[in-house]
């Protein structure tokens, strides 16, 4: 339970950080809020050669929003700032849902959304809502910048599509479509701090009482935050009824691939997927009426 030895850098510019990252090569890790990376090191699951802290780099801690362009969350923007952001609450309530239940006050004061994504835990709370919102991540390296749909970002537990030498500088969230609604919910055995054994994020678009488009992402029930394509297909273009919602829950449970671990059994997780899917769909529908 002690931190291993490592070298520490606090670059002042993004370029400096990228150069360092390249120079240090394998074994170099980026640190944003540190709430994941430090815990991993304490548990002996990670022994970095060097840690490159982003905190002193100017200009990447911003959260910017305009009703024309959408939302951009910078790499070092803290979770607490998402939580208190009125535009996010208004336009992206499912993201607020997620950060509200995440961790605790202290961790939210330290941790970042981008860190939550880069850490790539299957249970990462911001991943499901951000994926359903069609978010795009901006990955920067010395070679330049590339944009990648968040949907394609997660490759496995702790594994992402990021290449060696890349830093995620921001995540961009497009404006929600008219008549769309989003919701995020998770299960936990206690109300305070908890790593959820199952969660679901939904974003659905309605035309009259028809679900014209939908995205459903399940957390903590697969190696990555899981797009539930089959369930989406089942819902898309259908008349919105109780039966449809019930079926969707069932389908999502089938589609999920949970494991049993110290937090919950696979079986119960599947059942929770059904419940969460239904409940997020209901809330998404309610919220869509306001948009």
């Amino acid at each position: 339970m002690r931190l291993p030895k490592f070298e520490y850098f606090t670059p002042k510019t993004l370029n400096e950080a990228l150069a360092l990252l390249k120079e240090q090569g394998e074994g170099a890790y980026i640190m944003a809020g540190g709430t994941d990376i430090v815990v991993k090191m304490l548990h002996g699951r990670l022994r970095p050669k060097s840690v490159i802290a982003l905190q002193e780099i100017d200009g990447i801690n911003k959260i910017s929003f305009s009703p024309q362009e959408g939302l951009t969350i910078g790499a070092t923007a803290r979770i607490v700032n998402i939580l208190s952001h009125p535009d996010i609450l208004q336009y992206y309530p499912a993201l607020t849902d997620a950060v509200k239940v995440m961790a605790n006050i202290e961790v939210r004061n330290m941790g970042t959304v981008v860190g939550n994504l880069c850490n790539a835990a299957p249970s990462a709370d911001t991943a499901p809502p951000l994926i359903t919102m069609g978010s795009v991540v901006v990955l920067t390296s010395l070679e330049g910048e590339r944009r990648l749909s968040l949907d394609e970002f997660f490759k496995g537990p702790g594994i992402t599509a990021m290449n060696q030498g890349e830093i995620m500088t921001s995540v961009f969230v497009p404006l929600p479509q008219p008549r769309s609604g989003g919701s995020y919910k998770r299960i936990s055995a206690r109300c305070g701090v908890d790593i959820a054994p199952a969660s679901a994020g939904t974003m659905a678009v309605f035309r009259d009482e028809i679900c014209s488009d939908v995205k459903l992402v399940l957390g903590a029930v697969a190696p990555i935050p899981l797009r539930a394509y089959r369930t989406e297909n089942l819902l898309r273009g259908k008349q919105w009824t109780h039966e449809l919602i019930q079926d969707a829950g069932y389908e999502a449970a089938e589609e999920s691939m949970p494991i049993s671990d110290c937090r919950a059994s696979a079986e119960w997780r599947k059942k929770m997927v059904a419940v969460l899917t239904r409940r997020t769909l209901v809330e998404a529908y309610e919220r869509s009426k306001k948009n």
Partner: peptide, 28 residues
């Protein structure tokens, strides 16, 4: 020592943080 209990909480620049997860170098 792993951010889970709150006993180590201190305020850094106006925000409460877990001192067990904060690197000393980062409070320069």
């Amino acid at each position: 020592g792993t951010g889970d209990c709150g006993a180590c909480t201190v305020i850094v620049d106006g925000k409460s943080v877990s001192s067990c997860l904060t690197l000393a170098v980062s409070v320069d």
